[in-house]
């Protein structure tokens, strides 16, 4: 996993709530068996509309998505995170994320940043007024800076450390393999198995 420490970039305002993962990456894209190449499918239905914000050349190269509440609802498809990353996003800011999307993002080093709705609104308005403004997402200090504001966000110490170090969960868990084996010895014999 790519580590995340401090990232500064331009922002794309996405003024929609309940952006579900079917919109982020439609199901026709899920047939691929690779992890790469999903950027072309990002918001593909919405991008068919010329007025969609990602079609505005002023936002080319932007790396922070600033969206409405309940971002990433619906399907568990991690392809949504891969699509956002492949397109070039490093962080998504929203008042609230769906749980599975948030977990998928944290597992891949795409930082989901929860900020109050008013703060998100201010950032969106600033990026609309001036698409060239830069926003800094600082995981070390757990704050977002830019558009004349400094806003702190919450992320637990453990997850923050894992992201700062770019550590993957499987490797961390396997350090406790003995505990897993011990636990397995205590499982009830009647539990189902397909062996």
């Amino acid at each position: 996993m790519e580590a995340f420490t401090i990232h500064t970039g331009r922002a794309v305002p996405l003024r929609r709530s309940d952006v579900d993962t079917d919109q982020i990456i439609p199901s026709e894209w899920l047939k691929r068996i690779e992890r790469t190449g999903f950027g072309a499918g990002l918001f593909s239905e919405w991008r068919a509309d010329e007025g969609f914000v990602l079609n505005n050349p002023a936002y080319d190269g932007a790396s922070i998505l600033v969206a409405g509440p309940d971002f990433g609802t619906g399907s568990s498809r991690e392809h949504a995170v891969w699509a956002l990353q492949d397109y070039g996003f490093r962080a998504v800011i929203s008042p609230r994320f769906a749980d599975i999307f948030r977990g998928n993002a944290l597992g891949n080093g795409l930082l989901p940043v929860e900020l109050p709705a008013e703060t998100v609104e201010t950032l969106q308005a600033a990026a609309e007024q001036d698409p060239t403004i830069e926003i800094t997402v600082d995981l070390v200090a757990r704050e977002v800076r830019g558009a004349g504001l400094v806003a702190s966000f919450e992320l637990d110490d453990f997850t923050r450390w894992r992201l700062l170090e770019g550590l993957d969960d499987v490797g961390l868990t396997l350090r406790n393999e003995e505990l897993i084996t011990e636990f397995e010895a205590t499982r009830a014999a009647w539990l189902p198995s397909v062996a």
Binding site: S76, E78, V81, G103, G107, N108, V170, T173, L174
Partner: peptide, 21 residues
């Protein structure tokens, strides 16, 4: 019972466990 992403699928395949808040 809950849904997981592909990285977590990998995690469960490899360890039969999942770190969860």
């Amino acid at each position: 019972a809950f849904g997981i992403g592909t990285s977590q699928v990998e995690h469960v395949l490899a360890t039969q466990t999942l770190p969860q808040g």
